[in-house]
């Protein structure tokens, strides 16, 4: 066998850049693999679209009986719903990997990831995109476009800046919640995503404006499980102009991220301790 002298190495060299490039490369590969299963792909998007349309119908039915709740009209609530879809969609698009933690632990697939010279989380999240997010993002945009003109939005430089800060922060909150919740699988192998379903269920509370809830619950949704940052604070910024809460949303996002990271690290350490 002759020696092949081609010494070319694909991709950038600096480590951080290389990890990012590899992440993108994995996602690209999976996208191609996934698109070859057309039925699956369409069913995924269709199912998600159905879920969200039903959610909207629900909102319509509810508001058809009461014109406003605690000062929020149907169109304002629709705006809030649209923002929730955008924020959750953004987080779900890049958060699909979290859902594979349970299976990877149960089937011992984590071993394979631990043998590779790449951070395990990068490999997990590189394992696929959340395609259902396409439906969420599309529908969310449509709702915002329709509801927008019905709501007197306070447009200013401040509002735009607030949205630019608040939406990624909200996505970070949801993304982190899903990572932390799915990491529970390290402790109860059988649970698989149950806690994540629970937290997703709690995030449904963000479909309604915060003042609907008792003070205690509203406090929890701001300080403990800051799902109010998914939709309520950004929506309030649009309706009533930016306030302190929306400017503080990066704190909620980064705080959630830190907590999720700690849970994940503890879980991984446990896995390395027991092997299951």
């Amino acid at each position: 066998m002759g020696v092949d002298a081609d010494r070319r190495i694909h991709g950038p060299r600096p480590y951080a850049l290389r990890v990012l490039w590899l992440y993108g490369r994995m996602l690209g590969q999976h996208a191609l693999a996934r698109l070859s299963y057309e039925t699956d792909f369409l069913l995924t998007i269709g199912a998600s679209a159905l879920t969200q349309v039903l959610g909207l119908i629900f909102l319509g039915v509810v508001f058809s009986r009461i014109p406003s709740v605690r000062g929020w009209t149907f169109w304002q609530a629709a705006l809030l719903y649209g923002l929730l879809l955008e924020v959750r969609g953004l987080a779900a698009a890049f958060g699909e990997g979290a859902w594979s933690i349970g299976g990877a632990v149960a089937r011992g697939e984590l071993d394979r990831l631990l043998l590779r010279p790449l951070p395990v989380l990068v490999q997990l999240y590189g394992g696929g995109l959340g395609w259902s997010a396409i439906a969420d993002l599309g529908l969310g945009a449509a709702i915002l476009a329709v509801a927008g003109p019905h709501v007197a939005i306070v447009w200013s430089f401040g509002t735009v800046a607030a949205l630019c800060v608040a939406l990624p922060s909200g996505a970070m909150v949801y993304w982190s919640a899903m990572l932390a919740a799915n990491s529970i699988a390290f402790w109860t192998v059988g649970a698989r995503g149950t806690v994540a379903f629970l937290l997703h269920g709690v995030s449904e509370l963000a479909k309604f404006p915060l003042p609907v809830y008792p003070r205690l619950l509203a406090g929890v949704l701001t300080w403990c499980l800051p799902f109010a940052f998914l939709s309520f604070y950004p929506a309030r910024a649009l309706v009533a102009g930016p306030d302190l809460a929306v400017w503080l949303s990066p704190l909620a996002g980064l705080g959630s991220l830190l907590c999720a990271w700690l849970v994940w690290r503890a879980g991984l350490a446990r896995y390395e301790g027991t092997g299951s």
Binding site: T39, T51, L54, W131, S132
Partner: peptide
């Protein structure tokens, strides 16, 4: 027909 049972479960529950 799909590997995405989460999506199916959610939309069935929503429905």
């Amino acid at each position: 027909w799909t590997t995405n049972y989460v999506g199916i479960a959610w939309s069935r529950a929503a429905l």
